[in-house]
Design a protein around this nucleic acid. Structure first.
Lengths: 123, 123
DNA sequence: TGAACAGATGTAAAAATGTTCAAATGAAAG
DNA sequence: CTTTCATTTGAACATTTTTACATCTGTTCA
């Protein structure tokens, strides 16, 4: 039982949908592209094992760059680079104490997202 | 007030921690590297706007490759490649109906993770 | 002020990733 | 059994991303 195939609309509809009606309805309900893009950017930040390890370490305690470098067996420079990415994504915050800068998880969102992900992985 | 600096242990502790005691405690509580790695792999899958768009589309309805291609203005091949990644990560499942294969979100975990992420982005 | 140190940044090389195109599957209908 | 059509696969190419190394900034403390 073939689906109706109305003439192709003028839109940049490069590929034909087998079920145009459904497709149209779905399109209408999609969040703005901007949000989807930002969302992907956010998850991209979580998508690196070094950064995940940093986040999990900060899960336990605030730490300075040197501590993280030691803990992860990475150069302070490498850690700093990753921390910048985490900072830009608002996943960590920091405070200065004299010469040392302590990093910590920014909010509980981060904890929740990590936990949800871990649940999926543990299945 | 400088922290104690016991002689460097024989471990592959390439960089000195300013706060060895804290570092040790944190290390003990870290999940196995394998989990952290898998977790990063999972988030890596979410970290692409095409895949996010696919997931959000499937949020509304099950869809076949052609529908997704039309909806996203991508080639069926590109869509199929991404669906494979999503399948491998167990984020989507599929069923065959005659010649057509329908894809759907695999479980509510996916919905939850997306929602959590979106909350963070919307702030 | 300047030496010492923690951390940040620029950039180039190396590695991983996404999209495209062409060709291969594999189920279904004749 | 052959054709058709939806989907998958593989290789190539372009783009991003990660990492390493060197250099720079900024703070503390003598």
């Amino acid at each position: 039982m073939a689906t109706n195939r109305p003439e192709i609309s003028e839109k940049e509809n490069d590929y034909l949908a087998a079920h145009e009606d459904v497709v149209k309805r779905v399109i209408e309900r999609q969040p703005a592209d901007e949000y989807l893009y930002d969302l992907a950017e956010l998850f991209k930040v979580f998508g690196d094992s070094t950064r995940i390890r940093i986040l999990y370490a900060l899960f336990e305690s605030e730490l300075c760059v040197g501590d993280l470098a030691s803990l992860l067996a990475l150069s302070p420079s490498a850690v700093s680079h990753q921390l910048k990415i985490l900072k830009d994504a608002k996943l960590v915050r920091f405070r200065r104490d004299g010469k040392i800068i302590f990093y910590a998880l920014d909010d509980d969102h981060v904890r929740t997202i990590l936990s949800m992900g871990m649940e999926h992985v543990e299945e």
